[in-house]
Structure formats: structure tokens, C-alpha cells
């Protein structure tokens, strides 16, 4: 039994999948703590889809895939900003318009040059077969992102909470926002490898949402969010060995299970706690 459980650790590719997933999960979870507070969750989804043509082109021209993805992400963000400024269309409409355009373009490129890269790799991710050079890119992206976030997390919190106050204490608000979205695109690209374009949104939304139910302080929210995500991502990669299933699917399912547990049993904001309060209030009312 023990032997069977330890079996994944005897394969290099499994070990690598586990720690790379955990690293990506940590960085994405840190960002998710901010993203879900602003109602910008869909931005993560949009970026993940928008980078697809960049990845496809990068593979085609044998450039580092992160560079291509990044360029496409920036282009999409600029496109959205431009359309927003020039028209009165609502934000969700503009996001929907731009990211599907980019995604379609990406699929087109991949389907015309089927040898360049496997469509399934981009859409569903394939952490088990990640190449050495891709691992290097993912590690650089996530370590740099986590480092910057640890340095700037309080400044970013003020910017997200109250821009006016952030300016009044002399913070470079626009610069910090650009930093955040740059890190978000970079980590989205890193997450493409692990869970694929379709499920990246779960990586940058769910851990933050789970942690939000567990605490009322932002600092703790970040710690919880990152911890939950590191554990679920590592565990997900490990379990996928036995299930022989898509790693991304397993990881996101675990994220959802964590969310459901918090939703039910969170000490203050959970369903059971709310029931208990209602019952206590009713009892107190009955006596009084």
C-alpha cells in the first residue's frame, strides 16, 4: 500500500509536476486575493484566452512561449482599454468581444500549423510533459512574481481598497496597477502549462474566494489563499497519477472541494454558522 502511494515520487516527471504545480498555484492564489475583491475575476479568464495566439505563434517561430504569450496579453489589454475609452460599451461586453477574438485567432493559427503545438496542450494544459526550458520559464515567472508581491502586498492592498487614499499618501497608483496586471498576465501564462487556458480562471479566482469566507483580514486572506492553493495543486498533480486523468481537471476539482468545505463550515461566513446564528437568535427571541 505504502509502496503504491509513494510510487509517483519515484518518477522525475511526477515530482516535477508536483512542485511546479504548487509554485504556480501559490503565485496565482496570491493574485486571486486581489482580483476577486475588485469584480475583475473575468479579466483572468480573458487574459488566459487572449494569450493563446501568442503561445501558438511563439511555438511556430520557436521563441520562448512566455514572450509570445506576454505580447498577446498586453495587446489584448490595450485593445480592451482602447475600445472602452472610445465607446460606451460595458466592460463585460468589451472583455467578451476581445478575448474571444484572440482565442479564435489562436485556434486558427494552431489548426493551420498543426505541427507547431498541440491544441490540447494549450487548452487543457500538460504539466506531466512539461519541457525543461518551459520549467525554467515557469519558475522565473512565479518566483519573481511572488517576490514582488511579498514586497508590495500592502501597497497593492491600499490601491485596491481606496485609490484616493493611495494617492494621498503618495503611492504611484497607476504604476502599481500596471505591475499587478503584468504579474497577472505572467502568472496566467505560467498556469497555462499546468491547467490549460480553460481552467486558468479557477486558479486566479477560487483560492481567493475560499479564503474570503474564512477571514476578515486581508493579510490572513492572502496566507490562507496561498496555502490552500499550494496544497490543492500539489495534491492534484499527485492524485492525477492514480486517476490517469487530466491534471488540470483534478487540481480545479480539489480547489472546488476546498471552496465547498469553506462554504459549509467557515467559522463566521459559512452556511452552518449562519444557521447556528439564526437558531440562537430565535432561541434568544423565544426566551425574551
Amino acid at each position: 500500500m505504502i509502496e503504491l502511494l509513494l510510487e509517483p515520487f519515484s518518477y522525475d516527471y511526477m515530482l516535477r509536476a508536483i512542485w511546479v504545480s504548487a509554485l504556480v498555484g501559490g503565485a496565482c492564489a496570491f493574485l486571486s486575493s486581489y482580483l476577486m475583491l475588485k469584480g475583475w475575476s473575468l479579466m483572468g479568464d480573458a487574459l488566459a484566452h487572449a494569450v493563446v495566439p501568442g503561445v501558438a505563434l511563439a511555438y511556430l517561430l520557436s521563441l520562448p512561449y512566455a514572450a509570445g504569450a506576454f505580447a498577446a496579453g498586453i495587446l489584448a489589454a490595450l485593445g480592451m482599454t482602447f475600445i472602452r475609452q472610445q465607446t460606451k460599451l460595458r466592460e463585460d461586453t468589451v472583455i467578451g468581444l476581445v478575448f474571444t477574438t484572440f482565442f479564435a485567432l489562436g485556434l486558427l493559427i494552431v489548426s493551420i500549423n498543426p505541427t507547431a503545438v498541440n491544441v490540447q496542450t494549450i487548452i487543457l494544459g500538460n504539466i506531466l510533459a512539461i519541457s525543461d526550458s518551459d520549467v525554467v520559464q515557469v519558475v522565473i515567472i512565479t518566483v519573481v512574481s511572488l517576490g514582488l508581491l511579498i514586497l508590495k502586498w500592502k501597497d497593492l492592498m491600499v490601491v485596491f481598497f481606496d485609490e484616493g487614499h493611495a494617492r494621498s499618501i503618495g503611492l504611484p497608483v497607476t504604476g502599481l496597477k500596471i505591475l499587478f496586471f503584468t504579474l497577472l498576465s505572467a502568472c496566467t501564462v505560467a498556469a497555462l502549462q499546468t491547467v490549460g487556458a480553460c481552467l486558468v480562471i479557477a486558479m486566479v479566482v477560487t483560492p481567493g474566494a475560499t479564503a474570503y469566507l474564512l477571514t476578515d483580514r486581508f493579510g490572513r486572506l492572502v496566507i490562507l489563499s496561498v496555502t490552500i492553493s499550494v496544497v490543492t495543486c500539489a495534491l492534484g498533480a499527485y492524485i492525477s497519477y492514480f486517476l490517469d486523468g487530466a491534471t488540470g481537471g483534478v487540481i480545479v476539482t480539489l480547489h472546488t472541494l476546498a471552496f465547498l468545505a469553506a462554504f459549509l463550515a467557515a467559522p463566521r461566513h459559512g452556511l452552518l454558522a449562519a444557521r447556528r446564528r439564526t437558531r440562537l437568535n430565535a432561541a434568544a427571541g423565544g426566551q425574551g
Binding site: 481598497f161 487614499h165 499618501i169 476578515d216 483580514r217 486581508f218
Partner: peptide, 13 residues
């Protein structure tokens, strides 16, 4: 709905 306590907000000052 932002997860901050009263003292956290004042500390931002």
C-alpha cells in the same frame, strides 16, 4: 465588503 478591520483601515493612514 473588503476584508479589513477598523484598525487596519486606520493603520493605512
Amino acid at each position: 465588503n473588503f476584508p479589513v478591520l477598523v484598525e487596519d483601515v486606520v493603520m493605512m493612514g
